[in-house]
């Protein structure tokens, strides 16, 4: 049975909503999944034996949110993530110039270390009028 670690980085808790929705959706499919705050997960534990979903919002004018930043910085200390596969989901607001920049910054860093992005990048646009859970479920149905 596949096991998923849903790692979320957030400023105001919206990424946690997406993470919990993904855990619930995967559980109903009989898949094991657990949501973990990104700043509570050691990058050294990233392993090819697990499957990951990285979720992060974008803060301010394209910056990483409070709990994504330390995880992102810790990635710089790794040599390789070869064999690690991950899905990705970003939260942003399309009225900002750097819409959803943070998830792309994180993806670039993971890919530079040899990790492989699976599927399409999920996105929630805070200016769309679409709820967080609705965006999450649309992406989940397409991705899993």
């Amino acid at each position: 049975m596949s096991s998923y670690k849903i790692l979320f980085g957030t400023e105001s808790g919206n990424a946690e909503v997406i993470a919990d929705d993904i855990v619930d959706a995967l559980s109903t499919k009989g898949l094991q999944a657990v949501a973990i705050p990104m700043d509570e997960y050691a990058v050294d534990d990233l392993s090819p034996g697990e499957r990951y979903v990285f979720i992060t919002s974008t803060y301010g004018e394209g910056e990483l949110p409070e709990t994504t930043q330390p995880f992102f910085e810790a990635l710089n200390g790794l040599e390789s993530l070869a064999g690690v596969e991950f899905f990705a989901f970003g939260l942003g607001d399309s009225t900002y110039t750097n819409y959803n920049r943070a998830i792309h910054v994180l993806i670039d860093s993971l890919q530079d270390l040899g990790a492989k992005l699976i599927g399409t990048i999920g996105k929630h646009d805070g200016n769309s009028g679409v709820s967080l859970s609705s965006a999450a479920h649309t992406w989940i149905s397409q991705s899993f």
Binding site: T10, E11, S12, G13, N14, E16, V17, D20, G60, E66, L132
Partner: peptide, 16 residues
């Protein structure tokens, strides 16, 4: 502003 806001943000997440 960011420093001050972060001290309260975590108390008003959708989950909490």
């Amino acid at each position: 502003h960011t420093r001050l806001r972060r001290h309260s943000n975590k108390w008003f997440t959708p989950k909490l």
